[in-house]
Nucleic acid binder design. Structure first.
Lengths: 162, 162
DNA sequence: TATTGTAGCTAGATTTTCTAGCTACCCGAG
DNA sequence: CTCGGGTAGCTAGAAAATCTAGCTACAATA
């Protein structure tokens, strides 16, 4: 994300902020490689990495878009052959969106050059360094998850008070 | 980005991929906190962290949008008071976009909760761990920078051949 | 000087998201 | 059981963002 050049606490924090800014750009890069929009790429990303099945509404919630937009988004993804609408096992209101195998392979192919390089960098770590780095990454992930979760759902920044 | 659940090379790589996926979501979270669109937030992010002055065209290039869209984007940012159009010192065709102090402070305020938490996590590292982690982050940043740079500029994924 | 390439802008079309409102469905209180 | 509140998903029409195409002004160079 943004790297405020003031408050330069430490080298590590600075390196991390730089990484986060570039990391945010990788989603757009993936989208361009797949030839789809950034929201669509983010959607597939969420669907692939989610532990629980997602429906259009919940997916839209995680993407920060409205229910109606999520329906259109899923329409797009289905028509492009990236996603299937499957019924939810317990709740007949819901859908369980599934990423097609073809789309999954496409994502993997588009990411491969980065994943290969990442593995090379990781392989150069000693076991001790790897352990410390993994713990660090997980802690930072938790921090950012919290940050994302506490962002306002709606565009109510300076909302008026009754 | 996406976390392919196959090819589980290492714990560290897995943690990193999880981080990258969440990191991509932070830009949207920042945008919602600022009450602007994701492209606008990405633009301000780039303007703040760029070492050299950017004009609309170059900014649009980094965001993966067209020159015309960049002009409209800058119009939006200027009207919202986030950005100023300043003349380029040497080239009279160009503009040097400047983030206003107010917008800069807004970004800093919106990011503060995350930055504080990040600093706390960083402060728990030993000097050796910090050094190794910093080197790791920089290497990964370079990998991702390369990935973003080599993404197709246009939407030419399966383009037909003459 | 004439030519070629680039930065920025405008007009109009296209794509994406939003607001508003609908039906079908789940679940807990009476 | 059934009634009412809440949720999931969809549709229609409006609003917003981006795109294509083409323009002028300027810079670099033959």
């Amino acid at each position: 994300m943004a790297r405020p050049s003031s408050t330069p606490t430490s080298e590590t924090a600075r390196a991390l902020r730089e990484l986060l800014r570039v990391a945010s750009d990788t989603r757009g890069a993936l989208a361009r490689r797949l030839g789809i929009g950034t929201t669509d790429a983010a959607a597939i990303d969420h669907l692939i990495s989610s532990s629980e099945p997602l429906g259009p509404v919940e997916l839209g919630h995680r993407l920060g878009i409205r229910s109606a937009s999520a329906t259109t988004l899923v329409d797009r993804l289905v028509q492009a052959g990236h996603v299937r609408r499957a019924p939810h096992p317990h709740d007949r209101r819901r859908l369980a969106l599934e990423v097609t195998e073809h789309a999954y392979d496409e994502v993997l192919m588009a990411l491969r050059p980065m994943l290969v390089s990442v593995d090379q960098v990781v392989s150069r770590l000693t076991p001790e360094q790897a352990a410390a780095t993994t713990a660090f990454l997980r802690a930072i992930t938790e921090v950012m998850r919290e940050y994302v979760a506490t962002a306002p759902t709606d565009k109510q920044v300076g909302g008026p008070q009754p």
